[in-house]
């Protein structure tokens, strides 16, 4: 390319500054300052940050869209799910068949819509064990790992009687707690998120400790258990349950969390640490239940403590 040519092109460049590579400096500065302002506002604000109303407003719009999209793709996503769970279920088939027969007998006598009940009978058992009511919901959106936080959206919100800091579980065990709600959706912080802390009790020794999400890449997720009494060594395969928060928020007591898979002692901090494998498969979350006070108002059928639908 000759020199005049190059100059010519440079002239054109100044004619249309936004169409060439370099954007105007004022725009760059303005956008970067805007980002810095947002980060500062939200970071300093914490739980009652000035961006919470914006979060909620956007959730009111995006939430229903996520619910609709999840419903639209559910028939397709159910196919690989079916194959995957088919493999793992085959092992448990014998046990479940006996249990199923008993549940079916119950269903026939209850006279409620059988198909719907079948979907919820896992949850029903969970509600009976805990003595509380459950609002059933489905997971409609999952936060990507790129965001480095483990959160999901469920399709029940304040209209279903949900408020922040309620326990979320499924028929395998503890899933997480509700962070914030919109009218029709809620955001759930999973227990495998590194920022989540749950009070846990080792089932066979009644020792208490704290479970935090383990920093690991993967669909599933593991938890770290740190016991309060540092002289106790938790046994392998011991079950861990929640010990419950005051007033049942954010975690109710007695929900199974997972089992101990590995134990190691931290010499520097002189504590015992155990790795917990959660009972819940966080890569394939679908139907979950939110623990509410028995008899609370909801826009859907609530699974009551005695196992009945209301």
């Amino acid at each position: 390319m000759t020199a005049p040519d190059r100059r010519e092109r440079r002239w054109r460049a100044t004619d249309r500054p936004d169409d060439r590579g370099r954007p105007p400096g004022s725009l760059v500065v303005a956008l970067l300052l805007a980002c810095a302002t947002l980060i500062t506002l939200d970071y300093r604000g914490g739980a009652d940050s000035p961006l919470e109303p914006a979060r909620r407003a956007l959730g009111e719009v995006v939430g229903p869209a996520e619910t609709a999209a999840a419903a639209a793709v559910r028939p397709f996503t159910a196919v690989p799910d079916w194959f995957r769970s088919h493999d793992s279920l085959r092992e448990d088939l014998d046990d479940l068949e006996a249990e199923n027969a008993a549940l079916r007998a119950q269903l026939r006598s209850s006279g409620v819509d059988r198909n719907r009940l079948e979907e919820y009978d896992g949850l029903t058992t969970a509600a009976r064990d805990l003595g509380r009511a459950l609002v059933p919901a489905r997971v409609v959106g999952m936060g990507p790992s790129q965001s480095f936080s483990r959160t999901v959206t469920i399709d029940a919100g304040s209209e279903a009687g949900l408020t922040p800091d309620l326990t979320v579980l499924n028929d395998d065990g503890l899933v997480g707690r509700i962070l914030r709600v919109t009218r029709t959706t809620a955001t759930v912080l999973l227990i495998v998120d590194p920022g989540s802390t749950v009070g846990g009790r080792v089932g066979d020794s009644m020792e208490v400790g704290f479970l935090t999400g383990r920093d690991e890449i993967g669909d599933g997720g593991l938890l770290d258990l740190e016991l309060v009494d540092e002289s106790v060594v938790p046994a392998r395969d011991a079950p861990v349950l929640t010990w419950g928060s005051e007033g049942g928020a954010p975690y109710v007591a007695g929900v199974p969390i997972g089992r101990v898979t590995r134990v190691y002692s931290d010499v520097r901090e002189t504590t015992q640490r155990a790795v917990i494998e959660p009972y819940v498969d966080f890569g394939a979350l679908d139907v979950v239940g939110v623990v509410v006070a028995s008899g609370s108002d909801s826009d859907r059928a609530v699974v009551e403590a005695d196992g009945s639908l209301r």
């Binding site: 810095a36 959160t151 999901v152």
Partner: peptide, 17 residues
């Protein structure tokens, strides 16, 4: 949008930046 729409739960403005 990524920062504020559910199920995001990090300090807002990070994806924007």
């Amino acid at each position: 949008l990524l920062d504020l729409a559910p199920p995001a739960d990090h300090v807002a403005g990070r994806w924007a930046l």
